[in-house]
Design a protein around this nucleic acid. Sequence first.
RNA 1: GGAGAGAUGGCCGAGUCGGCCGAAGGCGCUCGCCUGCUAAGCGAGUAUACUGGGAAACCGGUAUCGAGGGUUCGAAUCCCUCUCUCUCCGCCA
Length: 422
Amino acid sequence: MLDVKYIRENLEKVESQLKKRGENVNLSSFREFDSRRRELLQEGESLKALRNKVSEEISRISDKSQVQDRIAEMREVSRKIKSIDDDLRDVEENFQSYLLTIPNIPHSTTPVGVSEADNVEIKKWGKIPEYPFAPRPHWEIGESLDILDFERGARITGTRFTLYKGVGARLERALINFMLDLHTDRHNYVEMLPPFMVNRESMTATGQLPKFEDDLFHLEGVDYFLIPTAEVPITNIHRGEIVKGSDLPIRYAAYTPCFRKEAGSHGKDTRGLIRQHQFNKVELVKFVRPTDSYLELDLLLADAEQVLQILGLPYRVIDLCTADLGFSATKTFDIEVWLPGQNTYREISSCSNFGDFQARRASIRFRDGEQAKPAYIHTLNGSGLAVGRTVVAILENYQQADGSVLIPDALHSYMGGLKKIG
RNA sequence: GGAGAGAUGGCCGAGUCGGCCGAAGGCGCUCGCCUGCUAAGCGAGUAUACUGGGAAACCGGUAUCGAGGGUUCGAAUCCCUCUCUCUCCGCCA
């Protein structure tokens, strides 16, 4: 959520900055809500001040006959207050839900664009391997090695669900452990294992709700949602808190499965592990001082990149343009890993700075010292990495002519010494 | 699932038959004093949000004692609903 005072004072600027997202923003109703709200507020508050004053006087007058008309008067005032408060509640509710639908303002360094074609590649790492044979896509490799079972996954649940088998399951688990160990032991994140279902408040705080409910799995009987990313439970750890400035930056790493409906991508990436309704991810989340957040974004990106570097997987980094930027983010770097079986780069991580947007929705603040004013922190998060897609990248990049797949060195110990699949 | 207890400021904890309770007291913390260091001691201060005024320092108003409703001129205090926590029993990985 954006700062109401900031919008009030910079209405046109905000509008033009939001237009860069390609959204049809119209802040004219902002003015209406805002002035109506303040009008009602002032009217109600002066009546309350009067009532408080007179009520206090009533309590001090001992002669009861003298207070009857004052009481009658205040009865009327109270009735008026109630009706103003009712109107005010209405206005505030509508104002609030309106504010929750306004996306974040892109950062000044975010490239302006009208489609994903305007994203900017800022870095390439690793050598794209050459094969003396036609590299196969991971779904073929996985099936022929009998480690991925798409048919039975679909039987158990439905389309976009996959069964991992034997060494395949082990590889997924190895990657989760490897990533968590790397981020906790070497990058100083604190490991968290959060709930995989969250309530509506948590989803609203990070920005999934109210606008993107269609993308979420909702439970029947309770108003809970399956998490689409660990970002949601982890960011909400500090919802409603004022943390000590000296504790910043706070870094958390968490493994969770992620559940997404993938509404609107019917027919896209139907084969293989790329687009699943359930997938595993190790997520990095940071709570930082506002002044540090863009530096922290670079560090976060580097932490995620290192996973690919250690695994020896070629990738590139993309600076997302305003048209491709997520609802809550001010700036996002995507990491795309090279997939030889599909002869393309695919997103494997997305590292974003949300500024104070989520912090304001979630009311997460920090304070330096006792007498300092609390201020909103900045939140960031990034995948470190999407585990299923890392399996995909390993299968495709490390495939051999004989159909086997080599396991990257860093994973040998996590695979019980196994160096090759098949 | 059954029975019971509770939810007050950073923490602990008081709150009388509703009125001067944003809320006693203690701890903690901050600043100052004092003691040759430390400890102790003394004094002052110590919530948040919205809102009006002001360049600002700051001053005023309103709200907040788990959440939402109700009664009342007036509610932390009375009534209703909900949420959460704790204890015991049952069930269960």
